[in-house]
């Protein structure tokens, strides 16, 4: 790996000030499970000048219950989320989601903040510099997207314009379903931002000097059924080809409220609004599930090699509605 200056940040203020001082040429390092690969393969047009270790910031790795709900520090490791009784009780969908990420060794170091902020996995974007040079594209300030005319079997089927890479974060899908809100700190103070609004077509809403410090999950209705399904070729290691998270509240078999979120289909997690609206007030059955599944794909515009993802979206939506619980 090429050299960089290295800092152990002792506080959020230190980290954000360093980010500001390096004007975009520094990277935060949490678990490193994404960042180190990015650096090794030299996929970015500008190699960072500094790496800022944020694991040395105290107090950002706790899971706590408060009035507003469940608060999870950005440096909380996925393994701790999986093992937390609080998470299991209140937001099993997040536990299920975290369980499907990567491998045990990675979950032992990977953080929630890092999972949300990880860079895209589009294989053009990730193409290693050592085999003929990295590939420039829209997302790297270039002029084209290679996925559209190329190998796009894992790319977006909806909601994309210039860049067709999908949001790789699994936890983002569950957190969107749970209506979670991020706390973001910068040199000028902190702000909050719903996970649902965090992603942009070419990245996320963080300013140069900002980082996520915690994630707040409003306490879900105890009656709500939470579910997550992730479709991959292999259970471990693989990123989602399609995933679906749902939080559905039933009142005597009638759907009182539904949040259905599609993952890995677009540059952001996608709320299946039409399906959600349709389900409300309906009795859940195979037929309503099938209709909701159809509605979830309305407006999709797949590429040459990923039409099959539509079928998988429909199947998973049907299945989360039918299973009604956290089966993966």
């Amino acid at each position: 790996m090429k050299n960089f200056a290295h800092y152990n940040a002792r506080s959020v203020a230190e980290a954000t000030h360093l980010l500001a001082a390096y004007e975009g040429k520094a990277k935060l390092n949490a678990g490193g499970s994404d960042l180190i690969g990015v650096l090794k393969d030299r996929i970015l047009p500008d190699y960072p000048e500094a790496v800022i270790n944020i694991k040395t910031i105290p107090g950002l790795n706790t899971i706590e219950e408060n009035d507003g709900g469940i608060n999870i520090g950005a440096l909380t490791k996925l393994v701790d989320i999986i093992n937390s009784p609080l998470i299991k009780k209140n937001c099993p969908v997040l536990k299920e989601t975290a369980r499907t990420v990567a491998s045990p060794q990675i979950r032992n170091v990977a953080t929630l903040g890092g999972n949300l902020c990880q860079d895209t996995r589009c294989w053009y974007y990730r193409y290693p510099d050592g085999i003929g040079g990295m590939i420039k594209c829209f997302r790297k300030g270039g002029k084209t997207c290679h996925a559209v005319p190329g190998e796009n079997q894992y790319h977006a089927i909806m909601g994309a314009k210039k860049c067709f890479a999908v949001c790789p974060s699994d936890t983002a899908v569950a957190l969107t379903a749970l209506g979670a809100v991020l706390t973001v700190a910068g040199t000028k103070g902190t702000r909050t931002l719903p996970v649902e609004e965090f992603y942009t077509p070419l990245g996320n809403m963080l300013a140069l000097d900002e980082m996520i410090t915690s994630v707040n999950i409003p306490k879900p209705d105890p009656a709500a059924e939470q579910a997550f399904l992730k479709f991959t070729l292999r259970k471990p290691i693989d990123f989602a080809i399609v995933s679906v998270a749902s939080v559905i509240t039933l009142d005597q078999g009638i759907c009182a409220d539904a949040r259905i979120i599609l993952g890995a289909v677009a540059p952001t997690p996608v709320r299946a609004h039409k399906a959600e609206e349709y389900l409300k007030g309906k009795k859940l059955s195979d037929d309503t599930a099938a209709e909701a599944a159809m509605l979830a794909t309305v407006g999709a515009n797949p590429l040459s090699k990923n039409i099959y993802k539509l079928e998988i979206v429909k199947t998973l939506v049907k299945r989360v509605i039918n299973s009604g619980s956290c089966l993966s």
């Binding site: 290295h6 490193g32 045990p104 060794q105 990675i106 032992n108 170091v109």
Partner: peptide, 11 residues
Amino acid sequence: AVLSCILLTVE
């Protein structure tokens, strides 16, 4: 169990 190829020694 952790992966030593994605950990920085300084950390």
